[in-house]
């Protein structure tokens, strides 16, 4: 069947590209291949009837993770080569058994693959899951899209803690840099006119698309995290184009942006306890509360992901004076 042929070609290509990501000796190229793999995975999600995941993968999995990795890959090649040489000269037992590590690792990885294959073949082929349960209860959830009803009602607690993970990562990045805002982070020294142009037209478009994804999430694929990721991508682009973006925010505003969603869940949870349980909002107001919570997710996800980008690529705060001397072309 042609249908099946598409899947086989796609699956094969993903496996080959993943392998190339590993083999590619040049770090930068490897990262580009990783992004390509993410985009191909998005196609796989579409084939598997998971458009929400396809959007999230393209925006977060391939997009933002990829740009984080690419920025990390921009290191002095010569410095790395020297470090590699130093390491090769001094690394204990590996000197006596060159390649032993690789053989053991390959054997372990193959063993894992074999065991996983057995487990996967053993899985029952018929549906065993919560599709039915979700379909029955969806009416009471306040939204008409099953994934949103799980994320923001049935399992809203998990989503809250997930927002917490994102927040903690940002707090961790700030703590590592020993700072409370990102003003000392590196801004781009030489930006090009075309990038500035793109940043200017992208921002309003990104707001439009994010708004659309956010709004449509209640009844069709899309949703708050995807919308937030789109906005974050626009913020990152602005940063690359030399605008200040999130690194222009003061300590208080950055903190408020990072915290907004987590705090909103906390407040909604607290109010829910008067009606029954923590995070309870299944009745008439359900949809409104979900929309409000999703709006906070959009804002916090956008700010946090952009802040993670600014923080992960930045030099430490020590040379902040030098950074400040290179004033950006404009601040927003």
């Amino acid at each position: 069947m042609l249908e099946h042929g598409v899947d086989i070609v796609l699956a094969g290509s993903i496996a080959v590209v993943a392998w190339r990501v590993l083999l590619e000796p040049q770090l930068f190229r490897s990262m580009v291949l990783f992004i390509a793999m993410g985009l191909m995975l998005s196609l796989a999600w579409v084939r598997l009837a998971a458009p929400d995941i396809a959007l999230a993968e393209a925006a977060i999995g391939a997009g933002l993770t990829g740009i984080l990795l690419i920025r990390a890959a921009q290191t002095e090649a010569a410095q790395e080569a020297a470090a590699a040489a130093r390491e090769a000269a001094t690394s204990g037992w590996r000197r006596w058994f060159p390649g032993a590590g690789r053989i053991v690792s390959a054997a372990a990885a193959l063993a894992f693959a074999a065991v996983l294959l057995v487990a996967v073949i053993d899985l029952p082929g018929e549906p065993i899951g919560l599709t039915e349960a979700a379909a029955t209860e969806m009416e009471a959830s306040g939204v008409e899209h099953p994934v949103t009803s799980v994320l923001l009602n049935f399992r809203a607690y998990d989503t809250w803690l997930e927002v917490g993970v994102l927040l903690l990562a940002a707090m961790g990045v700030l703590a590592i840099h020993r700072t409370y805002n990102l003003r000392s982070t590196r801004s781009e020294e030489h930006t090009m006119l075309v990038l500035t142009w793109l940043a200017r037209i992208i921002l309003p478009l990104a707001v439009l698309i994010a708004g659309y994804l956010y709004w449509s999430g209640t009844h069709q694929p899309g949703g708050a995290f995807q919308a937030g990721a789109i906005l974050a991508a626009a913020l990152v682009l602005m940063q690359l184009a030399g605008f200040r973006g999130v690194s222009g925010l003061s300590t208080l505003w950055l903190g408020a942006g990072l915290m907004l969603s987590f705090a909103a869940f906390l407040a909604v949870g607290f109010i829910g306890t008067f009606e029954g349980e923590f995070l309870r909002y299944r009745h008439a107001t359900g949809e409104l509360i979900i929309l409000a919570l999703e709006l906070t997710i959009v804002v916090s996800t956008a700010v946090t992901l952009a802040a993670l980008f600014a923080g992960a690529g930045s030099q430490s705060g020590d040379d902040s004076d030098a950074v400040r001397a290179r004033t950006p072309p404009e601040s927003l």
């Binding site: 090649a77 075309v194 990038l195 793109l198 037209i201 478009l205």
Partner: peptide
């Protein structure tokens, strides 16, 4: 239209980088 804007920019950037970066 979005794809056009994106690829035009990316093309510019790559071309510039390839001129700058003698490596």
């Amino acid at each position: 239209f979005l794809a056009l804007a994106g690829s035009a920019t990316a093309c510019q950037l790559i071309a510039n980088a390839s001129v700058d970066d003698d490596v």
